[in-house]
Design a protein around this nucleic acid. Sequence first.
DNA 1: GTCTATACGAAGATAGAC
DNA 2: GTCTATCTTCGTATAGAC
Lengths: 180, 180
Amino acid sequence: MRTTTTREHIVEAALALVADRGFTATSVDDIASAAGVAKGSVFYNFGSKSALFEAIITEGVGRLTVALRGATVGLHGRDALDALVTELLGQIRSHPDFAKLMVAETFRTGRSWQDSIRLVREEAMGAFAAVVADTWPHRDATLTAAALFGATLLAGLEWLVFQPERTLDDVRAAVLATVH
Amino acid sequence: MRTTTTREHIVEAALALVADRGFTATSVDDIASAAGVAKGSVFYNFGSKSALFEAIITEGVGRLTVALRGATVGLHGRDALDALVTELLGQIRSHPDFAKLMVAETFRTGRSWQDSIRLVREEAMGAFAAVVADTWPHRDATLTAAALFGATLLAGLEWLVFQPERTLDDVRAAVLATVH
DNA sequence: GTCTATACGAAGATAGAC
DNA sequence: GTCTATCTTCGTATAGAC
């Protein structure tokens, strides 16, 4: 197992802080001291605070895209929906800070990283919309996808932030019972 | 119809800006110029930037609480759920900036207005949880409530932010078809 | 009660030593 | 490649005129 590099330390610390307090409210001083490095190293490695943030988002987008696209391969109907919900909940559990960030930034506009955020949203919504179109062709795909995505996302965050003693299966069961 | 006061102008401008860019990213200069007043007036009327923000949230919490509590009076089962979804969508339409703010701030911690935000979340979640407990007593009330709330909230914001040409009935139908 | 001018601290970014 | 020291801008908040 490879040693964690300075870059990775910084990304990890920044993601945790920004998910909790927001981008502007998190100073580079905070990030540097949480990562155990000097402020200069942050700028050496990323160039600017917003570039650091964009790197974090891009990394998360890639990870989520791969995971969601793989989840429904070869599946249809409710099996596909079950798999998608389960995979998204698993991603939320593995990367709760990224999930918080997504929720916080999705409906904002005019920020420099808005395009990257839009990508995540479209990727996730698109995965649900594809299942909807395939399973219930008579339903409104995008609005239904938003409802399914919202149910999974908020239940997942409710779990991790406010009821961490629950299991993934508890949450999965609650979401699937609700949307079936 | 009473003239809009300076205070109300400031609240309105601040809410719009903060919903779009976040609290720390919005300066008092921005708020003052959007409201058409001088910066000093903001501090005269509210004391501090964070006090202004708390006033905005408190106002929104009160409004939402009254609306959601009134929505299900005398109703049970699916009628209650329908009424709750419809009322929440109506509130999102009337006060989209407040809805954005809620979504952005709900899963953060350690901010000065966190208690007020927690109140909104608990009020909305509680309204859904009451309906769930009443209608499906065998289901997990809080997780199911989170799923229902999430479905309604994200579908509502998808509507207002990305598909404003849709009608409230479109969104309501999509949400109810999904969660029934 | 609202304005303008200003004080003061915080935070992003850079330079240069090691 | 990482550190410390420093520059500079921006933003909150206050003081005092109107």
